[in-house]
Simulated scan of single mutants.
Amino acid sequence: MTVRVLVVDDSLTMRNLISAALRQDPEIEVVGSAADPIEARAAIKTLNPDVLTLDVEMPNMNGLEFLEKIMRLRPMPVVMVSTLTAAGTDVTLAALEIGAVDAVPKPATATPEAFHDLIGKVKTAARSRVRARSDAPPREAAPQNYSPDPRHVLAIGSSTGGVEALLTVLGGFPANCPATVVTQHMPANFTASFAARLDRVCAPTVTEAVEGAPLEPGHIYIAPGGVAHLETTPGLTPRCHLSVGDPVNGHRPSVDVMFDSVARLKRPMTGVILTGMGKDGARGLLTMREAGARTLGQDEATSVVYGMPKAAFELGAVERQLPLHRLSSAILELCADPAVRSVA
Rank of each mutant, 00 (worst) to 15 (best):
Arg4Cys: 01
Asp10Leu: 10
Leu17Asn: 08
Ile18Ala: 04
Arg23Thr: 00
Gln24Ala: 07
Val30Met: 13
Val31Asp: 10
Pro37His: 01
Arg41Cys: 06
Thr46Ser: 15
Val56Lys: 03
Val56Leu: 15
Asn62Trp: 02
Phe66Trp: 09
Ile70Leu: 14
Leu73Met: 08
Val79Ala: 04
Ala86Lys: 14
Ala86His: 12
Val122Asn: 08
Val122Pro: 02
Lys123Thr: 00
Arg131Val: 10
Arg133Leu: 14
Ser134Pro: 05
Asp135Leu: 11
Pro137Tyr: 11
Arg139Thr: 00
Asn145Ala: 12
Tyr146Lys: 00
His152Thr: 03
Ile156Asp: 07
Ile156Ala: 11
Thr160Gly: 02
Leu170His: 06
Phe173Val: 03
Pro178Asp: 12
Ala192Thr: 11
Glu211Met: 09
Glu211Gln: 15
Leu215Gln: 06
Leu215Ala: 04
Glu216Arg: 15
Pro217Arg: 13
Ile220Cys: 02
Tyr221Cys: 03
Ile222Pro: 05
Ala223Val: 07
Thr233Met: 14
Ser243Trp: 06
Phe259Cys: 12
Val262Arg: 07
Lys266Gly: 00
Lys266Ile: 04
Met269Phe: 05
Val272Met: 00
Leu274Ile: 04
Thr275Gly: 02
Met277His: 06
Leu286Gly: 03
Met288Trp: 08
Glu290Arg: 15
Arg294Thr: 13
Glu300Asp: 13
Ala301Phe: 01
Pro309Arg: 05
Ala311Leu: 05
Ala317Val: 02
Arg320Glu: 12
Gln321Met: 15
Leu322Ile: 06
Leu322Asp: 06
Leu327Arg: 03
Ser329Tyr: 05
Arg341Tyr: 03
Ala344Tyr: 06
Ala344Ser: 12
Ala344Val: 10
